[in-house]
Structure formats: structure tokens, C-alpha cells
Design a protein around this nucleic acid. Structure first.
Length: 571
DNA sequence: GCCGTTTTCGGCCCGACTGTTTTCAGTCG
């Protein structure tokens, strides 16, 4: 994807400019541009064809020209020139926690260290002492940082971070003197992956809490231990940062630590324009710096003349502008959900019987769930042949005839074959209440092939929803190369819904595309893709994506009652 | 390098902790 590559290049250019001690605002311009391009819902090529590249926030004349250069030449000359003077290995050093551009430059150019392996060896031998003021402790930190880099598999999945955070909150929450405790950061914003876990605590006795924190049983090492701020690395290689504050500043601290950074920066700029100042302790006015808000997040937003912005929207994607005009959406909530649209039983590759599904759905308070086992071509998941799926449907009908609370809907996750045909014929599909179609093979097909294959599936009048439309697995597989612009438009034309798959490794349709889909009035459906009882709870992660995509109740199929659902889907 | 309800020039968010420091730069979030 072009956006990703351009964002990467701009980010690296910012790194190099930083090493060169360039103007800090120029560096920030590059970083901001990188972030904004990464978050764009459509390909920069499409935007460029429309002639609106300069309309993208943070993209002016110069950067637009560089983007055009990349689109046409496949490279940016200025970056190629920079790379000659600042090799890969030097930039790699800055990825080590604790090493920034200054230290990286000193190591590479003054100490002549040309690789991480060499750096590790020299640090062990004590041979990089006295370079640019590096001492013993710094060397230990560098070794630790390298170890972290080698071991870490990158960012943690949302569910892993959520479980870890809840455990810590439960443990620290028990300590006498902890008045309030919450997680913040990208976890609170429900980002798809989490870099580190941020926790805010209200207490009058910070020292005691800090000591308890750095001495938790699963702490591998303490990265910082101050009076109000500390960081540790856990045995599982997840970094935890905590801040302790008082009741008056709790909201400001929670807001500050929740971010995103881009959101916070914009908030501070707005404060500044009103001759106010925001920091993590509150909102301040005048020369005497009188605190006018900070106890709650709501107080901060209110004092700045805007409505409360839910954490999932705080990405600097127009939410501040919308909040100032009181035009924020009322985001969909977990308790709006009336059912689950994607589910496997032990007939294919799940663990649950039809009865188990019904019982669990009952516990969740659902009105309905759709049973969507795999179709015959997906052999690895024991896909059902025509005979088996018909038998399954009979069993579902038998269950429903018992006048039970939960209604089970007959469905399937039918494979979209390599040529766009479906794995079942219309004679089978027409017997079903809700059909999901999905791509599980031929990921390497060309963009044109894979897109048209999916479009063809949407043309089938029985296909109600496309499952996991991008086909990625976070941390292990990039999605297939599909033209989402065409998919979205065709979804609207054929009244086919797109799935937000709530599995923590999928979480797609992604948030920015959900927002785009909503604008086109394409319906989304949230499916947990449950294979076991525990998976039902992944609904919260699907809701997280939906909320990050600005979706309201009316945008999500399974917030509708069964009666209304059957009315609005394709038939 | 971007941007405009003070501005097309002159601004551009704010603070904690560490290490090796005699008063602060570097890194991080």
C-alpha cells in the first residue's frame, strides 16, 4: 500500500532531520504528515488524481510534491540523498529504547559502531564508555534495550493488553490509599495494538503505591522510579507506565495519558488560542495560572467550549472540530447489541454445539445469533458439504420450534472461490436467513482479480455480508491487495453489509474504513467469529473498532431487532 | 515544513525522570 510506504519514508526523513539537528518544527511537520497519511481512508493516488492532495492536513506544497514524486517515480530523491549520509544501521539504533537520535549519531560516527550486534558486544566489554558522555548505567540500559528489541514481537494485541491491564488494576486497586485507578493510553482508545500500558492512580500516598508497583511479582526490570511517575517491564515484555496524582488533577491526567498525542497537541493549541494552558494537572488561566478545570475529563472539554469526546475518537481525525460544533456522533455501545452475526459450531471448526451457542447467546442477553459454519472447500476447517449443511439447518429449525428465548438464524460463511463463484449453489443459499461470504484462499491474486472476485460475490442476491473484507491477521499476515474504494461503492449498490470481525487478530473492516463506509451509507455488521464460548466476549473489541470508526447504533446491523434486521437486509 | 477568528510571516504543546551534570541535555510519552 502506497500510503504505508510514504508514511514510513516521511517518518525516516524526520529521524534523519533530527540527527542533523534540523529545525524542530520542520521535523514535526514530517512526523505529522506521516501520521496523517497512514490514517487516510483512501489511497494517496486516488486523492492525487482528484487534485486534493494539498487539502490533506499537514500536507503543503512541498510534501505534496514529494508524494507525487513517489507516485510517479517510486522513490523520493531527497530521501535517497539523505540515506547516503545516514545509513540504515544508524537509524536502527534509535529503535532501541533509551537511544535517541543524538546517542545513535554519537555511537555510529564517534565510536564507529556500525551494527546492533557490534553495539551489544562493545557495551558488554565496556568499550563505549566516555563516548558523548555515556557512563556505566547508560551501557546497562543499552544492553537492556537491545534485549527488549530482540525479544519483543512488537506491539501487543488488544485483548492481551486488556487482560494484563485488568490484572494490574485489580492488584494495585487493593492497596490501601488507592482512591481511584484506570487504564489510559491506546488501550483506552481501543487501538488495535498496544505499545505499552498506561495507568492513572489517585492517591495521597504516592510513594507507597510506587514501591508496591515496582515490586510487583512479574516485574522484570524497573525502567524509572519517581515520586509520581514510574515504568516497569514485565516478564512478558510489556511496558507499564503509571502516574499518580490527586483528585483535583485526575481528569487532566487521565486525559493527558489517554492521548492520542496528536489529539492532545491540538487541544493545547486551542487552549493557547484562548490564552489558557493545558498540562497533565489541569486547565489554567491567566498569569497567576489559576486552575479552572481538571477534576474530570468532562470539565476540561467543557471549559474549552466543546462537548465530551469519547476516548475512541481521540485521534485528531476531525473529532475536535466536530465537538466544537456539538456535532459528535452518539457512538454505538455494547448494550445496543441484539445479536451476533458470525459463529462456528463443532460441525465445522468450532467447539460448541448448537445448544451451547444458544445458551451462551442467552447469557449475553441476545435476541438472535446467526450460525455460520464454513463451506465445503475450506477443508482445513472441516467445511460442510451440501448434505451436512442442510442437516444443520434442520437441527436449527428444530431448536427454534421449541419457542426458546434466543432465535438461531440459519447461515453460513460461504467461501468465495478463486473465480468469484460461491462454494454453495443458490439452491442451498436461498434456504438461509443470513449468508456471509469470505475469501480464504488465493491471497496472492492481483488487486484486480481479488477485487472483482469479491464484487462478484456481492452480486449474488443471497449474500448479506462480506466477512473480514481485508483478510489480514495482525502481527502475522498482511491483508490481500483489494480495492476498498470499489468494494465500498459496490456494497452500497448491492445492499451488502461489510463485517467488522471482532477477533483481536482481525479487527477489520478497520476503523478509518468504517468511517468511510458510514459516509457512503454502507451497513456494517459486527461478528465475533466465535469458535468457543470465551470468544463471545470479543464483541467488545468489535465495538471498539466501530466506535473508532464513528459508527452509531443505526450504522450497525446487529443493533436492530430481529424483525427490523430481516426487513433491511438484502432479499 | 505547515498554516491563518490576532498572522501570508512568525509562530509552532508540555512536563517527568535519568544520568552524569555543576546547571542541563537527552529521551520519552
Amino acid at each position: 500500500m502506497t500510503n504505508q510506504r510514504i508514511a514510513e519514508i516521511f517518518g525516516r526523513m524526520a529521524d534523519i532531520l533530527e540527527i542533523k539537528k534540523e529545525n524542530i518544527f520542520r521535523i514535526r511537520a514530517y512526523r505529522k504528515a506521516a501520521l496523517n497519511i497512514e490514517n487516510l481512508p483512501e489511497d494517496v493516488k486516488v486523492i492525487n488524481d482528484r487534485g486534493t492532495l494539498e487539502k490533506v492536513p499537514g500536507i503543503g506544497k512541498d510534501l505534496a510534491e514529494k508524494i507525487r514524486e513517489f507516485i510517479h517515480q517510486g522513490r523520493i530523491q531527497a530521501y535517497e540523498d539523505m540515506k547516503k549520509a545516514f545509513p540504515e544501521a544508524l537509524l536502527k539504533f534509535t529503535e532501541i529504547p533509551g537511544i535517541g537520535p543524538k546517542t545513535a549519531n554519537a555511537l555510529y560516527n564517534k565510536a564507529g559502531v556500525k551494527s546492533i550486534a557490534r553495539l551489544k558486544q562493545m557495551a558488554k566489554e565496556g568499550n563505549i564508555k566516555n563516548i558523548a558522555g555515556l557512563g556505566d548505567k547508560t551501557m546497562i540500559n543499552i544492553l537492556r534495550g537491545i534485549e527488549y528489541l530482540e525479544k519483543s514481537e512488537g506491539r501487543a494485541l488488544l485483548n492481551v493488553a486488556m487482560e494484563t491491564a485488568n490484572e494490574i488494576i485489580e492488584n494495585l486497586g487493593k492497596i490501601d490509599g488507592v482512591e481511584r485507578i484506570d487504564y489510559a493510553g491506546s488501550l483506552r482508545r481501543m487501538k488495535e495494538t498496544i505499545g505499552d500500558i498506561d495507568i492513572v492512580i489517585e492517591s495521597k500516598d504516592p510513594e507507597k503505591i510506587m514501591n508496591a508497583f515496582v515490586n510487583m511479582t512479574n516485574v522484570k526490570n524497573v525502567l524509572a522510579h519517581g515520586k509520581t511517575k514510574s515504568s516497569v517491564m514485565t516478564e512478558e515484555n510489556i511496558q507499564i507506565d503509571i502516574r499518580i496524582t490527586d483528585a483535583e488533577s485526575y481528569g487532566a491526567m487521565l486525559h493527558y495519558l489517554t492521548g492520542s498525542k496528536a489529539h492532545n497537541v491540538k487541544m493545547r493549541q486551542i487552549a493557547q488560542a484562548k490564552r489558557l494552558k493545558i498540562n497533565e494537572y489541569g486547565l489554567y488561566k491567566g498569569k497567576g495560572l489559576k486552575r479552572i478545570a481538571g477534576k474530570t475529563e468532562e470539565s476540561m472539554y467543557k471549559a474549552l467550549g466543546m462537548s465530551y469526546i469519547p476516548p475512541e475518537l481521540r485521534e485528531d481525525r476531525q473529532e475536535i472540530e466536530a465537538a466544537r460544533r456539538n456535532r459528535l456522533p452518539t457512538l454505538v455501545k455494547l448494550r445496543d447489541m441484539k445479536g451476533d452475526l458470525h459463529m462456528h459450531t463443532k460441525s465445522s471448526d468450532g467447539l460448541l454445539s448448537i445448544l451451547d451457542v444458544a445458551d451462551t447467546a442467552n447469557e449475553k442477553g441476545y435476541e438472535y445469533v446467526v450460525i455460520t459454519d464454513h463451506s465445503k472447500s475450506l477443508k482445513i476447517a472441516h467445511g460442510l458439504d451440501e448434505k451436512a449443511v442442510m442437516e444443520n439447518m434442520k437441527e436449527i429449525e428444530k431448536y427454534n420450534s421449541g419457542k426458546k428465548k434466543v432465535r438461531l438464524l440459519k447461515g453460513c460463511e460461504v467461501d468465495i472461490l478463486n473465480d468469484g463463484k460461491l462454494d454453495y449453489g443458490d439452491d442451498i443459499l436461498k434456504e438461509m436467513d443470513f449468508v456471509i461470504a469470505a475469501i480464504h484462499s488465493g491471497f496472492m491474486q492481483s488487486k484486480k482479480q481479488i477485487t472483482e472476485r469479491c464484487l462478484r460475490a456481492m452480486d449474488n442476491k443471497y449474500v448479506n455480508m462480506i466477512a473480514h473484507p481485508e483478510g489480514r491477521l495482525i502481527g502475522s499476515r498482511k491483508g490481500y491487495d483489494i480495492d476498498m474504494g470499489r468494494i465500498l461503492r459496490h456494497a452500497r449498490e448491492t445492499n451488502t453489509a461489510l463485517e467488522i470481525n471482532a477477533h483481536p487478530q482481525r479487527l477489520e473492516l478497520r476503523d478509518v474504513l468504517c468511517k468511510e463506509a458510514k459516509n457512503l451509507r454502507v451497513k456494517l455488521g459486527i461478528g465475533t467469529d466465535s469458535h468457543s464460548k470465551g470468544h463471545f466476549s470479543n464483541m467488545i473489541y468489535g465495538i471498539g473498532v466501530a466506535r473508532r470508526g464513528w459508527l452509531e447504533k443505526k450504522d450497525v446491523l446487529n443493533t436492530f431487532s430481529l424483525k427490523d434486521l430481516l426487513k433491511i437486509i438484502k432479499k
